[in-house]
């Protein structure tokens, strides 16, 4: 490739022979272990973290309850949503009550939406984090542009730590010999403390995150 590439690599190669790099502490594990927790404990932990982050959470017992809750939140509103077949719990049916735009609509229309509706690949209990991947029918803008983000979480998708998510994703990618998906880990509403450390929500991303936990 370029001259710069060769020049840099050769300088680095020369340098790393001479580099003073302190030795690592011995006796450390190869990687972190994540203990297996039962689903109830995981959900409890997740809800605890949501509360600390200011994520509004609803726990629903059945698929019908999830849909009812969702309709209550989005009816009559403009919603930028994932394509219906990517939403769990048949939640796509609820979109009839809202003015809905999708990833395929124009950016201006997307920009007008009041609510973004997505599912998530996993929720990370340890930190109250949502792992939201994107792909066809799952636009990144849905969890990003509207001021409110509603996310649907399946009980079986709750993991303890991010490391577990990474291992699962790595294995899937290696098995299929495909690249990793684009993923964003979302932990609470968009925030800034740039001005005198005073906390302000919703500076660029959503200022409100609402999680519906289904069965």
């Amino acid at each position: 490739m370029s001259d710069a590439r060769l020049a840099i690599l050769s300088k680095v190669r020369q340098a790393q022979i001479r580099a003073y790099i302190p030795e690592a502490k011995s006796g450390l594990p190869a990687r972190l272990a994540y203990p297996a927790l039962d689903p109830g404990a995981l959900r409890f932990r997740l809800l605890e973290e949501f509360a600390l982050l200011g994520v509004e959470a609803f726990v629903e017992a059945s698929e019908a309850d999830v849909r009812r809750r969702l309709s209550g939140l989005i009816d009559g509103k403009s919603v930028l949503s994932w394509d219906p077949d990517h939403l769990p719990y048949g939640a796509g049916d609820c979109l009839t009550g809202a003015k809905t735009v999708f990833g395929s609509d124009s950016r201006d229309e997307q920009g007008q939406a009041e609510i973004g509706l997505t599912g998530c690949e996993n929720a990370i209990a340890e930190t109250g984090t949502l792992a939201v991947t994107s792909g066809p029918g799952r636009p990144r803008a849905a969890s990003l542009m509207p001021i409110t983000h509603v996310v649907l979480i399946r009980a079986s998708d709750i993991l303890l730590g991010m490391g577990e998510y990474f291992r699962k994703t790595r294995e899937t990618a290696d098995r299929g010999n495909v690249p990793l998906p684009y993923v964003v880990f979302i932990t609470g509403p968009s925030r800034t403390a740039d001005i005198e450390l005073s906390l302000t929500l919703g500076v660029h991303g959503p200022g409100r995150v609402i999680a519906i936990l289904g069965p």
Partner: peptide, 12 residues
Amino acid sequence: QKITTYTSIVPG
């Protein structure tokens, strides 16, 4: 913070 609000992994 336990984790920053957004962590994006951009693989291309």
